[in-house]
Design a binder for these strands. Structure first.
Length: 553
RNA sequence: UGGGGCGUCGCCAAGCGGUAAGGCACCGGAUUUUGAUUCCGGCAUUCCCAGGUUCGAUCCCUGGCGCCCCAGCCA
C-alpha cells in the first residue's frame, strides 16, 4: 500500500479506494482491463486503460490485462494481438502473460453445477422468443418459465447433456433462479450458459456451451483477486447480479465501480459501427488514420504520451460528458511541439525568383529552435523557390496587420534572407503565377538596420525540392454527434481525406516510418508506416498548428 | 408511465455544512527568424429550479424540471 501520487487529480474512484485502504477493507489495489477480442481498441478504451493501469501504478498494486473471450462467435486472435500491441504501445505493462476468461471455463462450469445443486439455477427449454415474451416489460413483471421447477437431478443431467453436445444451439439454456418480477430486468432469471457449437479461438472445440458475461465477469474478477472492478455506467444495473453470483458462490467479492464512458465529438465509438466502417470500406481499415482507434491514431502520428495526457485531462466522473475533439488535438500539439523536429515544405506552391541571387548555398537550420542541443540540418537555398500561395496577396486587405508578401512588401524567408516583392506575373486567367523578388543579402542570421520585418514565411528551393505524397486528414464525420443523424453513415465527411503532395526540403527524404515532423507554419506530419518505402516517405497530416491568423481573417 | 443513474463557467472537473480548486476554450498584453511556442493578466457574488432546516447550504430535507441507461441465448 502506498499513498497515491499527490499530483494525481482527485476523483470519486480514488476517494473510494482511499476509504477502502484506510478502513482496512482492502490492503491492496488490483484492477483489470477486460477487453473482448472482437474489435480494435479505441480512444474510449484508452480512457479505461489509463484509469485501470494508472490506479494500479499509483497505489503500487497490479492491473491485469484479461481478455473477456466468452463469445466465440465474435472473437478472433487477430484482435487479441492488436489489443496487446495497443496496450503496450500506450505504455502499460500487464506482467508476464495476458489472462483469458477462457482459462477459467472449467471453474465456471463447476460453479454452474454448484448453483444447480443449490437450487439456484435451472435449465430452461423455452425458445428465445418465448423467453423474451415471458421476461415481461419495463413496467410489467415477467412470467416464470414452465421449466423453472425442474428437479436438481434433471437440471444436472440436462446441463451435462448440453455440455456434451447432445443438444442443438438454442434448444436449452442455463438460467439463474432469481426473481421474474424484479423491477431490475437483469434479475429476471438471467441466462448463465448458452449452447454454441462454435470453435473458440483458444479452446477450440472443447466446449459447446459458453458462459454469459454476467455469469463470468464477477467470477473472473474474484479468481484474480480484483479489488476494484471498474467498468462503464451501463453495467450499473448488472451490479446486483454481479454481487448475487459472488455471494451465492461464497467467493472473494470484488467491488464493481462504474464511470461514464467517453464521448468524443465528430466521431463514433461503438465497436459495431467501427466494424461496419471497416467492413463497408468507408475507411481503409481499423488503423485508418481517421479512425478513433488506438492503431489509427498511432498511424496518424498521435504520440502515446498525448493520449495519456488526454485521458488524465478529461477526468473521470459519472455524468454523461462530451469531449470536444479539439481537446485531444491540443494534447497532440503539446507533445509534438516539444518533440518534433522542424522542417520546411510547401503544399500550395507559388514560384518565386530572386533576381539578385544566382548562387546556391547550404544553410544551417535548427532541428528544434527551442532546443539548440538537437542540432541542425542542411537546408539548400537558391534563386528559384517555392513558397505557399497563402503567403502572397496581390491586394492585401485592410486588416491592419497583414504581414506577408504583397507588392512592394518585405518578408523574412524562414532560416534565410529577407526578400522584397518587386513585381508579380499573372497568366491569361489573371492568376498570379510568379513573384520577382530581391533579397537583402545582409540579413542572413541577423536583422536589418532601421526597419523591422515582421512577416516570416516558409519556402523550399525549387531545384532541390522533393515531391512527396501527403494525406490531409480531417474529421471523419461532419456532425458533432453522428449518432443523432438518421443514419450515422450519412454524417460521414466526404472530405475527410484529401490526397495531395508537398514540395519538401531534401532532408525529409531520410524520414523513417512513424517519425513526426513539424512542417513549419503548416502542421505536424508523420511518415506513414504502411505506405512509405525507404527513401520515399508518404506523409500523414497528424494535426495542424494553431492558427490565430485564420481567425482574424 | 417500473428500476437504476446524472445535473457546479462554453467543454471537462474538484468540492462532501463555513462562505466556488484546476485544466481546456476564450479575451487582453509581452517576447519571438514558425501569426507557432513561451510568458504575464482577465474569466461562476454563484452551483438545474422552487421551497424548507441552519448563525451559515453547491453540499442536509421536500417537491418539481431536464438528461442518460435497462426488456441479447452480446459484452
Amino acid at each position: 500500500m502506498s499513498t497515491p501520487d499527490t499530483a494525481a487529480p482527485s476523483n470519486f474512484i480514488r476517494t473510494i479506494i482511499d476509504e477502502d485502504l484506510q478502513s482496512g477493507r482492502r490492503d491492496t489495489v488490483i484492477t483489470r482491463f477486460p477487453p473482448e477480442p472482437n474489435g480494435y481498441l479505441h480512444i474510449g478504451h484508452a480512457k479505461s486503460i489509463c484509469l485501470n493501469f494508472g490506479l494500479a501504478a499509483d497505489y503500487n498494486g497490479r492491473c491485469n490485462l484479461r481478455f473477456d473471450d466468452t463469445n466465440p462467435a465474435k472473437e478472433e486472435d487477430e484482435y487479441v494481438d492488436a489489443i496487446k500491441k495497443d496496450v503496450a504501445w500506450l505504455g502499460f505493462d500487464w506482467g508476464e502473460q495476458p489472462l483469458f476468461a477462457s482459462d477459467y471455463f472449467d471453474q465456471l462450469y463447476r460453479w454452474a453445477i454448484e448453483l444447480i445443486k443449490k437450487g439456484k439455477a435451472y435449465v430452461d427449454s423455452q425458445s428465445a422468443e418465448q423467453m423474451r415474451v415471458n421476461r415481461g416489460t419495463l413496467t410489467e413483471a415477467g412470467k416464470e418459465s414452465p421449466y423453472r421447477n425442474r428437479s436438481v437431478e434433471e437440471n444436472l443431467e440436462l446441463f451435462e447433456q448440453m455440455k456434451n453436445g447432445e443438444h442443438p444451439d438454442g434448444s436449452h439454456i442455463l438460467r439463474a433462479k432469481i426473481d421474474m418480477a424484479s423491477p431490475n430486468m437483469n434479475l429476471r432469471d438471467p441466462a448463465m450458459y448458452r449452447i454454441l457449437h462454435a470453435p473458440h479461438h483458444r479452446t477450440g472445440d472443447t466446449w459447446c456451451i459458453y458462459p454469459m458475461y454476467d455469469f463470468a465477469h464477477g467470477q473472473e474478477d474474484s479468481i484474480e483477486g480484483v479489488t476494484h472492478s471498474i467498468c462503464t455506467l451501463e453495467f450499473e444495473d448488472h451490479r446486483p447480479l454481479y454481487d448475487w453470483f459472488v455471494k451465492e458462490l461464497d467467493i472473494f467479492a470484488p467491488q464493481q465501480i462504474e464511470f461514464a464512458r467517453l464521448n468524443l465529438s465528430y466521431t463514433v465509438m461503438s465497436k459495431r459501427k467501427l466494424l461496419q466502417l471497416v467492413n463497408e470500406k468507408h475507411v481503409e481499415g481499423w488503423d485508418d488514420p481517421r479512425m478513433p482507434t488506438i492503431s489509427g491514431m498511432r498511424r496518424r502520428g498521435y504520440p502515446a504520451a498525448a493520449i495519456r495526457t488526454f485521458c488524465e485531462r478529461i477526468g473521470v466522473g459519472r455524468a454523461a460528458s462530451w469531449i470536444d475533439l479539439s481537446v485531444l488535438e491540443e494534447c497532440v500539439r503539446e507533445e509534438l511541439n516539444a518533440t518534433a523536429y522542424r522542417r520546411q515544405a510547401v503544399l500550395n506552391p507559388l514560384k518565386v525568383t530572386i533576381t539578385n541571387y544566382g548562387q546556391i548555398e547550404q544553410l544551417d537550420a535548427p532541428n528544434h529552435p527551442q532546443q539548440p542541443g538537437e542540432g541542425c540540418r542542411t537546408l539548400p537555398m537558391s534563386g528559384t523557390l517555392w513558397i505557399d500561395r497563402d503567403d502572397f496577396m496581390e491586394d492585401p486587405p485592410p486588416p491592419k496587420k497583414y504581414f506577408r508578401l504583397g507588392p512592394g512588401r518585405e518578408v523574412r524567408l524562414r532560416n534565410s534572407y529577407i526578400i522584397k516583392c518587386d513585381e508579380y506575373i499573372k497568366n491569361e486567367k489573371g492568376e498570379v503565377i510568379e513573384l520577382k523578388c530581391s533579397a537583402d543579402l545582409d540579413t542572413l542570421g541577423k536583422n536589418p538596420e532601421g526597419r523591422k520585418v515582421k512577416g516570416i514565411i516558409h519556402w523550399v528551393s525549387a531545384e532541390h525540392a522533393q515531391k512527396v505524397p501527403v494525406r490531409i486528414y480531417d474529421r471523419l464525420f461532419n456532425q458533432e454527434n453522428p449518432d443523432k443523424a438518421e443514419n450515422y453513415l450519412s454524417a460521414l465527411n466526404p472530405a475527410s481525406l484529401q490526397e495531395t503532395f508537398a514540395l519538401a526540403e531534401p532532408s525529409l527524404m531520410e524520414a523513417k516510418p512513424g517519425e513526426t515532423f513539424q512542417f513549419e507554419r503548416v502542421g505536424y506530419f508523420t511518415v506513414d508506416s504502411k505506405d512509405s518505402k525507404t527513401g520515399a516517405p508518404v506523409f500523414n497530416r497528424t494535426v495542424t498548428l494553431r492558427d490565430t491568423w485564420a481567425k482574424v481573417k
